[in-house]
C-alpha cells in the first residue's frame, strides 16, 4: 500500500510517498507561488518519478497545511498540528514536544506516545513569520539564505533584536548594521530572537524530552544552534524533518486506509 502525504504550506508545497506506512519512498518540494494546486501537482509528479510510481498507484492521499482543502483528489485532510505530530513520532518515536519554526508561523505541541496532540500553541500577531523574517534578513543583509546559518556560527556576541514586530525588527537590524555590529552577531541575534519566541511557545505547552524540530528552518544550522542554546536541551534534528507534516499526513492516511480495508462496509462512496 502506498500513501501520499502533501503539505500545502503558504510558501512551499512538500510531499512524500510512504510504503506500508513504514518505508519512505520519496520526498519532493516546490514553491507554491500562491497557486497551490499547480505546485501540488508538480510535487506529485516529481514524487512519482523519484519512486518510479504512476499517479494511479497512490492508494490514498492525505493533505495538510494551509491549502489542505485545495486538492480535490485528496482522500482525507488533517490540520498541520496533527500531521506534524505524527511525522515527528515517525522520525523519533520518543518525541513529546514538537517545534515547528515555519515560514509564516511558529508552532509547538506536546504529544502523547501515540502522537496525539495534547496541547498546542501558535504564535500570536506581532511575533509571526519566523521563516519569512529570515528570508527578508537574507535579502537585506545580502547573505544568501543557505549561508546565513553557517555564517552565524562564527558569532561571539550575538546582537539580540527586541522588537516583536517583524518590520520594526528590520529597522533595528539596519541600525545595528549602521553601528558596525559584526555580521555574524547580527545573524545569530536573528536566530536567537526567533528561538526565544519559539521557547516561550514551548514553555506554554510544557517542555519535556524528547524535543523534535520540524518544518522550514530545520535545515538551518544557525537556527538549530540557537534553539539548542535557548532551551538548553538536545533537539532531535533530521533532514527529513523538513517533510514532517507531509510525512505525518501520509502516516495518518495509511492508518485510515487500513481501517477502511479491514472494515469495507464502513466506506461511504
Amino acid at each position: 500500500m502506498i500513501t501520499g502525504g502533501l503539505d500545502l504550506g503558504a510558501g512551499v508545497i512538500k510531499g512524500v510517498l510512504l510504503e506500508d506506512g513504514r518505508r519512505l519512498l520519496a520526498t519532493a518540494s516546490a514553491p507554491s507561488r500562491g497557486i497551490p494546486v499547480q505546485a501540488a501537482r508538480h510535487v506529485l509528479d516529481t514524487l512519482g518519478e523519484t519512486a518510479n510510481i504512476a499517479p494511479d498507484d497512490i492508494d490514498y492521499l492525505c493533505t495538510t497545511g494551509f491549502g489542505r482543502y485545495a486538492i480535490p483528489e485528496r482522500n482525507l485532510q488533517v490540520s498541520d498540528f496533527t500531521s506534524s505530530a505524527r511525522g515527528a513520532v515517525f522520525l523519533f518515536p520518543k518525541t513529546r514536544l514538537v517545534v515547528d519554526v515555519g515560514t509564516q508561523a511558529s508552532r509547538t505541541m506536546s504529544i502523547s506516545e501515540t502522537g496525539k496532540v495534547l496541547k498546542f500553541k501558535m504564535n500570536e500577531k506581532c511575533a509571526a513569520g519566523a521563516g519569512r523574517f529570515v528570508e527578508r534578513c537574507s535579502k537585506y543583509l545580502q547573505v544568501p539564505l543557505e549561508e546565513m546559518g553557517p555564517k552565524a556560527l562564527a558569532s561571539e556576541r550575538p546582537k539580540l533584536i527586541s522588537s516583536v514586530c517583524a518590520v520594526l525588527a528590520e529597522t533595528e537590524i539596519i541600525n545595528n548594521v549602521a553601528e558596525g555590529v559584526p555580521l555574524a552577531d547580527i545573524l545569530m541575534g536573528v536566530f536567537l530572537s526567533l528561538s526565544q519566541r519559539a521557547h516561550s511557545l514551548m514553555r506554554y505547552v510544557g517542555i519535556q524530552p524528547e524535543v523534535t524540530l520540524v518544518g522550514g528552518l530545520v535545515r538551518n544550522v544557525g537556527m538549530v544552534k540557537a534553539l539548542h542554546d535557548t532551551i538548553g536541551m538536545d533537539l532531535n534534528v533530521a533532514p527529513d524533518a523538513y517533510y514532517a507534516a507531509a510525512l505525518g499526513s501520509a502516516v495518518l492516511g495509511h492508518a485510515r486506509l487500513q481501517k477502511l480495508t479491514t472494515a469495507p462496509q464502513g466506506v461511504g462512496g
Partner: peptide
C-alpha cells in the same frame, strides 16, 4: 479564518481522535 480554522480543527481532532 485560516488560522482560526487550523486551531479549531486541531482542537476538535485532539479530543475526537486517539
Amino acid at each position: 479564518y485560516e488560522q482560526a480554522r487550523l486551531q479549531l480543527e486541531t482542537f476538535a481532532e485532539s479530543i475526537l481522535f486517539e
